[in-house]
Structures are given as structure tokens and as C-alpha cells.
């Protein structure tokens, strides 16, 4: 069952976040985040609300310019590429659900081809085939002629995922792609991500799903990378307690062996009374001011 560690892929698409810092109005959202996403691997970003996960992704997407540091794709600084070149290498699925106009599902997915099409040129036969394939992989072909505004949250989420896939980029970044999805579609989407063998950087809230799908997991806390490594090293009862502030027992999955967290609603009974996570001792692997994972 276990497929880890996946063999390093030789093709392009290795992503490196190099010393990313983001300060907005004096608030330090991200502090010197260094993280490698080797080609063909899936790296999960986890952390509590406001820990800087989305901020990190937005830097990769260039929706946000980092105060310091850079994002490298195969050694090239993404800031040096034009937006269009970037869109041919990195496809993003953000949490943004803004849809102002009632485009059909087919048209929305076809927008994923726009970085490859000059000006106003309509998608050709090949582009349409790519879009159909993306819709088929997400199971939304039957919605092709529906308007996106009339879809449920989960259906819309799958449309956005299909659009990102239709971009046919070596790198995918996804911000909580399983939002609004029922459990079947959550698992289907994550399995799909794993099977694409693309370089994937994904923000996930569900630690157990993250353990199942990610080659490596990076844990952010207050804008600092506090742990990074294979799920079995990172997803520990201690991480659950110090970073997420929950009591959990970690057991290996009976089939795949990946760590799974069983949460307890009872107060933490084997530690001192629960305090704010920040008050906890220094989490594992944390250098003094910068955080690094490569």
C-alpha cells in the first residue's frame, strides 16, 4: 500500500522557498521560511489558523510580494518571470471563491488554458481535449454546460481544481483544496493530486489526510516553520499539543502505516495544564530566528 518515498523525478518543477519573510503593517506574517519541494513530490503545509500557510502560498503565486526572500523554480527566481510565464509553470487553486459572472463550467475550466493562448485566441481542439480530461478527472463533465454560480460549494471547488489541472503546469499549489468537499471527493481529489506526479505544495487542515497524501509535511506556527519532514516524524502527539493545542494519540494506520491522529475531547491529562501554545518550550528543529527545511 505504501508508496513512499516516491522516487525523485528528473523532470523540471522543483520548487524552493528561500528565506521568505512577509511583513504587513508591522505584523510579521512569515519569518524566513525556507522549504524545498523536490520535483514530483507532494509537500503539505499545516498549521493553526493565522500561522502563515496561505501567506506562503500567495508568495509562490505572486499574489503577494514577499518582504524578503524569493521563490525559486528549478533555480530561477519566479519574480524574474512574466506573469504569463509563471502561469505556465505554477498553477494555483486559491481559497478565493469570487465568481462575479455566471460563466459555464466549461468556460471556467477553459480559462486554465489562457496562459498558453495568445491574446484572445479561442481554445483549440487540443486545449479542449485537455479541459475535457481535467473535467473527467474531477468528475464534473456532467456539469459542463451549467453556470458556476448555481453550483454547490463542493462542485465549484472541483471546477477550480479542474481549471488548475487544465493549466498543465509542472507545479501545483493548492490552498485547502478539500474545503466544501464531502469525504469521498476529498479523498478522490487528494488521490488525484498524488497520482499526477506533479510537484505539489498544498495547505491542508486535516492532519490525517495530510499524513496520507504528503511525502513531507511542513508545520507552520506564528509564521515560523517549526517542523518539517516525513509525516511519521512530524505528526506527533507533541506537535498536536504544542502547535495545535489539542490532545491526540498517534497510531500507525493499520494498512498504510502512516501516522493517524486520534483526538481526545478530554483535557490533556498527561501534561501540565494546557497553556497557550506559544508558552511551550521551543518546538523541535527550530533554529533561533530562521527556519529551514530542505
Amino acid at each position: 500500500m505504501s508508496r513512499r518515498p516516491s522516487p525523485p523525478r528528473t523532470g523540471p518543477g522543483s520548487l524552493a522557498l528561500d528565506g521568505l519573510s512577509v511583513t504587513v503593517d508591522g505584523a510579521r506574517l512569515l519569518r524566513q521560511l525556507t522549504l524545498d519541494v523536490p520535483a514530483g513530490q507532494t509537500v503539505g503545509l499545516v498549521g493553526p489558523n493565522g500561522s502563515g500557510k496561505s501567506t506562503a502560498l500567495r508568495c509562490v503565486n505572486r499574489a503577494l510580494r514577499p518582504t524578503a526572500g524569493s521563490v525559486l523554480l528549478d533555480g530561477t527566481d519566479l519574480a524574474e518571470l512574466t506573469p504569463r510565464q509563471r502561469a505556465r509553470t505554477v498553477a494555483a487553486m486559491s481559497q478565493e471563491h469570487v465568481v462575479d459572472l455566471d460563466f459555464s463550467v466549461e468556460e471556467t475550466v477553459a480559462l486554465g488554458r489562457s496562459p498558453h493562448l495568445p491574446g484572445n485566441r479561442a481554445p483549440g481542439e487540443e486545449d479542449r481535449a485537455i479541459c475535457r480530461e481535467a473535467m473527467a478527472r474531477l468528475g464534473i463533465e456532467h456539469l459542463a454546460h451549467r453556470g458556476v454560480l448555481g453550483l454547490s460549494g463542493g462542485e465549484r471547488q472541483r471546477v477550480m481544481a479542474a481549471r488548475a489541472l487544465a493549466q498543465r503546469t509542472p507545479v501545483l499549489i493548492l490552498d485547502e483544496p478539500t474545503n466544501h468537499l464531502d469525504i469521498r471527493h476529498q479523498i478522490a481529489l487528494l488521490a488525484l493530486l498524488r497520482d499526477t506526479r506533479l510537484t505539489v505544495l498544498v495547505v491542508l487542515h486535516d492532519l490525517n489526510l495530510a499524513a496520507a497524501v504528503c511525502d513531507r509535511i511542513a508545520v507552520l506556527h506564528d509564521g515560523v516553520l517549526v517542523a518539517c519532514g516525513p509525516p511519521v516524524e512530524v505528526l506527533t502527539a507533541r506537535t498536536a499539543r504544542t502547535v495545535f493545542g489539542v490532545a491526540a494519540t498517534v497510531v500507525p494506520h493499520p494498512l498504510s502505516g502512516v501516522p493517524q491522529l486520534l483526538y481526545s475531547l478530554e483535557p490533556d491529562d498527561h501534561t501540565t495544564p494546557r497553556s497557550h501554545p506559544c508558552a511551550d518550550p521551543v518546538p523541535p528543529q527550530q533554529p533561533s530566528s530562521s527556519s529551514r527545511c530542505s
Binding site: 504569463r84 494555483a92 459572472l101
Partner: peptide, 21 residues
């Protein structure tokens, strides 16, 4: 001539950036 750009603008700024504009 900019009609696809208008389409993309309607998807929100972050998505627009991700789609190369």
C-alpha cells in the same frame, strides 16, 4: 481584444494572478 482578460478579472485577483495576468 481584452475579452479574455475581462473574463479572468471576474474570477478574483488571486486567481487572475495565477492565470498569468
Amino acid at each position: 481584444r481584452g475579452s479574455r482578460t475581462l473574463d479572468i478579472l471576474a474570477t478574483g485577483d488571486e486567481t487572475a494572478a495565477g492565470l498569468g495576468i
